[in-house]
Design a protein around this nucleic acid. Structure first.
Length: 565
RNA sequence: UGACCCGUGGUGUAAUUGGCAACACGUCUGAUUUUGGUUCAGAAGAGUCCAGGUUCGAGCCCUGGCGGGUCAACCA
């Protein structure tokens, strides 16, 4: 119904990367071509932080009439899997982006990468090191102290060549030898201290099987892939800033013209009340703190989608937050605002009662069904109207009745008259309680002249209540979500684990809810506004005999806010 | 004590590249309303981390501090 709203395209603001590109184009660089790439590692599901990167990479290319490649950075078979490849493609597509026929894998370049490594050895710019991980690491030095050179650093080229070939042939065990670039063990940049560029791995690769037993490291693969694909702008997050000299060093060895990809770093997205690291998200899933990667409380793309977020709202959000090198934290309220804005314009309105309280209209004929007209979306007259059945017995929201109301409570209470949305004015005459003193039923009378919601005598009422017929309805389960963590920055505490801040009330399941018949044929992911309550969408758990809704976001609620004070 | 990066209302982003700080979210008023939603009108809130300097003029340039982040995986 409103999963996507492509008609309203996102206005792309100018950020510092666009500014750099504009200047380059003015200077005639790359013949005015802009070619970006989105390079996920297939070792987890995409989250809202990746969405920012996706929108940046694809959006930037679109802005400058360029193109974007999708490239899986699959250089570590021990962590990667095709399960993730599929979900990543689905998510990028759902976000509304298209890589055309430019789907690549770092593994496509394994042979070229290997050949390039051989060339570096031949040129005396790389060597095989026989030392183990601990030894190599101890020779690395520290950020303030230079490292020491490996005893194998100056072994004959022929020897390195032979050993590297035998590493590839599988003659050695994992960890026995590595290939290192010969750069500068005294560099103030740790990444330039003879970085390891190939390691032995015997784990089968999800695409190349057991063809290889040596795999390139990220630093040795990424820039070269960019180069071979003709990428002009290699946009990545801030933590790769210190890698840039190494990225450039490899390109320097490789390039045979003026062309070279340019790495530009930006700040990754952080959101209040959530964690964003893949490791932590994986932990939440593995240890069952949530129900899978697509749990609607997760900041994953699939979680947000299941929660009812539209791709348009995520694209708008990505645009709103901007792109800079300042690493900060975005208020989740901005994300929530983005969905409400989109859903307000597009969501079908419907009435649903979450915590039912039975109301008997004593002067309404028994057995009669009154079909009333209701507006489908006040923001969009073209959405038309529908019929809602009204009967002698209805449900209203428990919160909409108070026996002893405070001054500002406009809703129903003994003796008071309110409007039932699209139906009639009713007055509460009697409160029926059970033996515990709990209100179990209200007995009201209606004014037949107020059909449709207006009284001919011009009488005003302060409140309009939503309602659902006791006999004409669809029963449903509704899942209410709150933030997963109770702390603004759950992983921002040095002395406390982020799990300590898990919100025990992040999920509330209501299984005695009633919705008007209109929703009976709703399909998974369809979005609705339950009037006065919020936006809800149909969960895929829905079956033919059980309708399940997720609350995407509540409506702004000034009454709740007043009470909170 | 090293290298690199960053520092503008509560939060995020802007500022025609040197011309008296704007927009969004949030907050608070008020109006409208058959959703205490939406919409509309308005308000409060920073003098741009600090100190010097250049200049008629600095958030933008220079110098020096201070604060924060990243980097010592055979991860990406």
């Amino acid at each position: 119904m409103s999963e996507n709203s492509p008609e309203k395209e996102v206005v792309v603001k100018k950020n510092f990367i666009h500014q750099i590109i504009e200047e380059e184009i003015k200077a005639g660089k790359n013949g005015g071509m802009v070619h970006t790439r989105f390079p996920p590692e297939p070792n987890g599901y995409l989250h809202i932080g990746h969405a920012k990167s996706i929108c940046l990479n694809f959006g930037t290319a679109q802005k400058f009439n360029g193109i974007t490649n999708l490239r899986f950075d699959d250089t570590n078979p021990s962590k990667e899997d095709t399960e993730y490849v599929d979900s990543i493609m689905e998510d990028v597509r759902w976000l509304g982006f298209d890589w055309g026929d430019r789907l690549f894998y770092a593994s496509d370049y394994f042979q070229k990468l290997y050949d390039f490594a051989v060339r570096l050895i031949e040129e005396g710019k790389a060597y095989v090191d026989d030392q183990n991980a601990e030894t190599i690491s101890s020779q690395k030095g520290t950020p303030t102290r230079p490292g020491t050179e490996s005893p194998f650093r100056n072994r004959p080229v022929a020897e390195s060549l032979d050993l590297f070939q035998r590493m590839k042939a599988g003659e050695f065990n994992e960890g026995e030898r590595v290939l290192r670039a010969k750069i500068d063990m005294a560099s103030p940049n740790m990444h330039m201290r003879d970085p390891i560029i190939y390691r032995i791995m015997k784990t089968p690769h999800h695409r190349t099987g057991d063809k290889w037993s040596v795999y390139p490291m990220y630093d040795f693969a990424h820039g070269q892939c960019d180069y071979w694909e003709g990428i002009t702008h290699s946009v990545c997050t801030l933590e790769f800033e210190v890698h840039r000299p190494l990225y450039d060093w490899f390109i320097d060895q490789l390039k045979d013209s003026d062309y070279r990809p340019r790495q530009i770093e930006f700040a990754r997205l952080n959101l209040t009340y959530t964690v964003m690291s893949k490791r932590k998200l994986l932990q939440l899933v593995k240890e069952n703190y949530v129900n899978g990667w697509d749990d609607p409380r997760m900041p994953t793309i699939c979680g947000l989608r299941r929660r009812g977020y539209t791709s348009a709202s995520i694209r708008n959000f990505a645009e709103r937050i901007g792109v800079t090198k300042v690493d900060g934290v975005i208020d989740v309220a901005l994300l929530e605002h983005s969905v409400r804005e989109d859903l307000n314009k597009h969501a079908q309105r419907v009435m649903g009662v979450l915590n039912p309280l039975k109301v008997v209209i004593t002067n309404f004929p028994e057995g009669q069904v009154d079909e009333l007209d209701a507006v489908n979306n006040p923001e969009n007259p073209d959405a038309g109207t529908r019929k809602v059945p009204f009967t002698r017995e209805i449900y209203i929201e428990r919160d909409d009745f108070m026996e002893n109301p405070p001054r500002k409570f406009f809703r129903l209470s003994p003796g008071k008259e309110v409007r039932l949305r699209y139906a009639y004015f009713i007055t509460c005459n009697e409160v029926v309680k059970d033996e515990n003193g709990e209100v179990v039923e209200l007995r009201c009378t209606y004014d037949p002249a107020s059909r449709g919601g207006n009284s001919p005598d011009g009488r005003k009422v302060k409140a309009t209540l939503h309602w659902v017929s006791v006999t004409e309805n669809v029963k449903a389960e509704v899942r209410l979500y709150d933030r997963l963590f109770s702390d603004e920055e759950p992983d921002g505490h040095k002395d406390k684990d982020f799990l300590e801040f898990l919100n025990p009330d992040s999920l509330e399941v209501l299984d005695n809810c009633y919705v008007e018949p209109f929703v009976k044929d709703a399909k998974a992911l369809d979005s609705f506004q339950f009037e006065r309550l919020g936006y809800f969408n149909v969960d895929p758990d829905t079956s033919s005999d059980k309708l399940v809704f997720n609350r995407t976001a509540p409506l702004r609620d000034t009454w709740a806010k007043m009470q909170g004070k």
